[in-house]
Simulated assay, not measured.
Amino acid sequence: MGLFGRGLEIKTPDQVDVMRRAGLVVGETLALLREHARPSMTTGELDAIAEDAIRSRGATPSFQGYQGFPASICVSVNEEVVHGIPGSRVLAEGDLVSIDCGAIVDGWHGDAATSVALGAVPEDVARLMTVTEEAMWRGIAAATPQGRVSDISHAVESHVRAQGTYGIVPDYTGHGIGSAMHLPPDVPNLGRPGRGPRLVEGLALAVEPMVTLGSDATDVLDDDWTVVTADGSWAAHYEHTFVLTERGAWVLTALDGGEAALSALGVAFGGR
Results as ranks from 00 to 15, higher is better:
G7W: 02
I10D: 15
M19A: 08
A22D: 00
G23A: 01
V25C: 02
L32K: 05
E35L: 13
H36C: 06
D47S: 03
D47V: 04
A53Y: 06
T60Y: 12
I73H: 04
V81F: 04
P86W: 04
V90A: 07
L91V: 05
G94P: 03
D95N: 11
D95V: 10
C101T: 14
I104T: 09
V105P: 06
D106P: 06
G107S: 13
D111V: 09
T114F: 14
G119N: 07
V121C: 10
I140E: 00
A142H: 14
Q146A: 15
V149I: 12
S153W: 02
A155H: 00
A155C: 09
E157A: 09
Q163S: 13
Q163P: 10
G174V: 02
H175S: 05
G178P: 00
S179N: 12
M181Q: 15
M181P: 07
L183W: 11
L183R: 11
N189M: 09
N189F: 07
G191T: 02
E201V: 15
A204R: 01
A206N: 15
A206F: 15
V207Y: 01
E208K: 09
G214I: 01
D222T: 10
T226M: 02
A230N: 05
D231S: 08
S233H: 10
A235H: 04
A236I: 09
A236P: 02
H237M: 07
E239Q: 13
V243H: 11
E246H: 12
W250P: 00
F269I: 07
G270S: 05
